[in-house]
Amino acid sequence: MTPQMPLTMLSEGKDCRIREIRASRDLKRRLTEMGFTPSSSVRLIGCERGNLLVNVNGTRYALGRGMAMNIMVEPDASEGVELG
């Protein structure tokens, strides 16, 4: 059983994989398009009072807290796969 947690609880600098997105249809679609899929690597750059800066597939995004809380992730056990 792998532990799942919301993106907001991820520690800085760690990589993780997306497990589930709890959001409306349109939102989910938007997120998956941007790369929030299980095969993409997501790393947390910084977190200020709930608003997150993440690096997804090499692109930097800012996420509001509300959004981040609905993205369930599983941290990578290893250091994280580098793509390319």
Binding site: M34, N51, T59, R60, Y61, A62, G64, G66, M67
Partner: peptide, 12 residues
Amino acid sequence: GKPSSFIMELPP
């Protein structure tokens, strides 16, 4: 309602 959740790309 509340403002929609915030997601924005940050260009380098």
